[in-house]
Design a protein around this nucleic acid. Structure first.
Lengths: 350, 350
DNA sequence: CTGAAAGCGCTAACAC
DNA sequence: GTGTTAGCGCTTTCAG
C-alpha cells in the first residue's frame, strides 16, 4: 500500500505522466480511450494525488487556516462546524489553531500557518487592537476574512452579525411586552461585539425610558460577570436586563434565582448569540440568534472570490441580520396583564 | 514580502543552500562564524521554510488530522482545545474534519487527510462498527489514535476515560448519601461509552438494591431523551437517576422540574462528562469529570511515540480514571437526615 | 566543515 | 492529442 505516483499510473496505462495529469486534473482535452485507460489504472492502483507536490508546484495547498480565540467559547463550535463544512465542500482542508485569547500566540499561529502555505486565513481576532498588526501583515500575503469580531477599519474583509439590528430587536420586543425600566449588562473593552452592542443599547434604550441609557453595568462576556452585574443593577429595580450575550444572561438568571426574584414576572432577561445553553436553561433565555450557517457561507464565498482572482475589489464588510428568539425569560411583561394604558414607568414591581 | 527561499538566504550570507539548510535544521555541525552569518541573513530577510517543499522531500508534513463526529457535541470543544495545544507544542499543525456523525463522510475525510499526507490521525469514531473499516485501513498507513470512543478491539491505539470507574464513583456516592432506589437513564447502541457505562451500572447497582439493575431506560445521549426518559422511570419512584451523560441529566432535570419533583430532595440526578452546562444548570449537576487535558496529553504522547519510530510496540489502550464532581443535584440524600439506620430501601418519598 | 547535484511528485510550457 | 522536459524549495548523499 505504498504511495502510488503519477509515474506508476502512467506506466500502467501506457502513456506519459503529463497525459495522466491532464486526465486527472481535466486541464486539457484528452482522447476518450486514453482517458478511460488512465482512469482505470488510477482506480486499480488506488492512486491519490500527493498534495505536497501539488502545493510545491502550484503555489496553492488547498488549505485554509482558521484561527480563533477559544474553541471552548460556546458560540464558536457551531461556527467552526459550518465553516469547515463550507470549506470542505469547496475541496479545501482546514488547519485549526486556538490561540487561547492570547494575541501573541495568535500572531505565532498566523505566521506558522502562512509558512505552511495556507491559501487563505479565517481569523476571529483575539483582540480588536492587539491583533491588528499580525492580521494586517497576514492579510497582505493571503486572502483573509475576519469573522465575528472586527480588527480596526479596512484591515481585511469581514463577516459578522449586525449587532445593532439585534439589539434593536431586543429593545422593540421588550417595549412591546410592556417593559420600560430596562438596563444593560454588557462588556467593556473595544472588541467590536462589545462596543456595537453597547452602542446599540445606548441608541435605542432612550426610547423606552430616558433613564435607561445610564443604567449600564460593564464587565466581560462571562457567566461570573452576569452574576456580579445583577448585584450592581438590582437596587435600581429594573424590569428588564438586556445582556450583551447569553453567558451574561445565564449568570444573571442564576443570581436572580438566588435572590428569589421572579423571571419573567418581576424582571425580564435577554441574551445574545443563542448558544445551546440559552435554550436549555430554565427559564429559557430570550435571545438574538446569529445566522451561523449564513455567516459561514458568506465567509467561504468571500474567500472563494479572493482566491479565484477576483482579488481586485475593495475590502468588503458584510453584516447579516440576526433573528429574535423569544423564550420564557421575557414572556408576558407587565403590559400583557390587562391594565390601564400607562407609561409602564409606574408598573408595579411584581 | 514575496516568499524568501533558502537560495536567497544563501546568496545573502555568501554560502551554499546546503549550508543554510544545515544551519537552520541543525542537522550537522557548521562553522560558528558561518552559522552566525546565515542566521542573521535569514532573520533579516524574514525567511520562513516552505513546508510544502519540506514535505515533498522529507515525506512528512508536520500535520495531524483530527476527525470527530460533531464539534457541537459540548464535550468535544475542550478536548479539541487540549489536543491542538498539545500537538502545536510539538510543532505539528492540526487539520480538522467534522463528519457530522456520518461514517461515510468520516471515511471520505480520512481518505482526504491521508492524501494530504498527514503524519498521523486522531479519530473519534462516529460509529463503533460502521467506522471500523475506514479506521483500520487508515491505521495501516499512518499512526492512528482513537479517542473517547472505541472502534472494535485491536484496531488502533486508543485513549479514553475509564467509564467503569466513573460509574462506580457515582454509585458509591449515591450509596454514601443514602440513595437506594437508583435507576439508569442511558443510551442504547454499541458505542463504547454507551455500552461501558451501561455495563458498569449493571455491575454496580445491584449492591444498592437488587431491583436497580432492571430499572434501566435506554435512548440516546440527548437532552430530549433525558426529558422523555423521566416519564418512563418516574412511576417506579426512584430516589436517584443515574444518567449516562450530562445532556441526559439536564433533560431529566428539566422534566422533573416541570413535574414539580424536588431535586435533590425527592430524587438525586447525576450525569457524566462534566460539560460546561453541568456546572451552570440549577441545581448544578453532580457528574463525573473526564480528565480532558490528560487524555489529550496521552494521545499526543502516543502519537509522538509512533511517529518517532517506536512504532514496534503492540496496540496500546489507555484508560484514565475520572473524578467525581459533587454538585447540588445529589446533595444530602435521605441518609443525611438524622434517622435510624436502615436499609434506605424504606426511605420516605420526600 | 562546505559545496555541487540529485531528486521528492507534480504541472505547465513547449514541441511534435 | 500526446510526450518531453524544466523546475517548485528543500534535504541529503557524495565529493572535496
Amino acid at each position: 500500500m505504498a504511495d502510488v505516483t503519477l509515474r506508476e499510473v502512467a506506466r500502467a496505462s501506457g502513456c506519459s505522466v503529463a497525459t495522466v495529469s491532464r486526465v486527472l486534473a481535466g486541464t486539457r482535452p484528452v482522447g476518450a480511450e486514453t482517458a478511460r485507460r488512465v482512469r482505470e489504472a488510477a482506480e486499480a492502483l488506488g492512486y491519490r494525488p500527493n498534495h505536497a507536490a501539488r502545493a510545491l508546484r502550484g503555489h496553492r495547498t488547498g488549505t485554509v487556516g482558521l484561527v480563533l480565540p477559544q474553541i471552548t467559547n460556546p458560540f464558536y463550535p457551531a461556527l467552526v462546524r459550518e465553516l469547515t463544512h463550507a470549506l470542505h465542500a469547496d475541496g479545501r482542508a482546514v488547519l485549526l489553531a486556538d490561540c487561547d485569547d492570547d494575541p501573541a500566540a495568535e500572531a505565532e499561529y498566523v505566521a506558522d500557518l502562512l509558512s505552511r502555505r495556507v491559501d487563505a486565513l479565517l481569523v476571529i481576532p483575539a483582540d480588536e487592537e492587539r491583533s491588528r498588526d499580525a492580521v494586517a501583515a497576514a492579510a497582505a500575503r493571503v486572502p483573509l476574512v475576519l469573522m465575528d469580531r472586527g480588527c480596526g477599519p479596512g484591515v481585511a474583509d469581514s463577516v459578522a452579525v449586525d449587532n445593532a439590528t439585534g439589539m434593536a430587536l431586543v429593545l422593540d420586543h421588550l417595549a412591546a411586552t410592556g417593559r420600560r425600566r430596562v438596563c444593560f449588562l454588557g462588556a467593556a473593552g473595544t472588541a467590536s461585539a462589545a462596543a456595537e452592542r453597547r452602542g446599540a443599547y445606548a441608541a435605542g434604550a432612550g426610547a423606552l425610558d430616558p433613564g435607561a441609557v445610564a443604567r449600564v453595568a460593564l464587565g466581560d462576556f462571562s457567566v461570573e460577570w452576569g452574576r456580579a452585574a445583577v448585584d450592581e443593577v438590582w437596587p435600581a429595580r429594573p424590569d428588564a436586563l438586556v445582556c450583551a450575550n447569553d453567558l451574561i444572561a445565564i449568570g444573571a438568571l442564576q443570581r436572580l434565582q438566588q435572590l428569589g426574584v421572579a423571571v419573567p414576572g418581576e424582571v425580564a432577561v435577554t441574551g445574545f448569540d443563542d448558544i445551546p445553553m440559552a435554550a436549555l436553561s430554565s427559564p429559557g433565555v430570550t435571545t438574538v440568534r446569529q445566522p451561523v450557517p449564513e455567516l459561514a457561507a458568506e465567509a467561504a464565498r468571500l474567500l472563494g472570490l479572493r482566491l479565484s482572482g477576483d482579488d481586485t475589489g475593495p475590502r468588503r464588510s458584510i453584516r447579516l441580520a440576526p433573528k429574535l428568539v423569544v423564550r420564557e425569560s421575557s414572556a408576558r411583561g407587565p403590559a400583557a396583564i390587562p391594565a390601564p394604558a400607562g407609561t409602564g414607568e409606574s408598573a408595579p414591581f411584581r
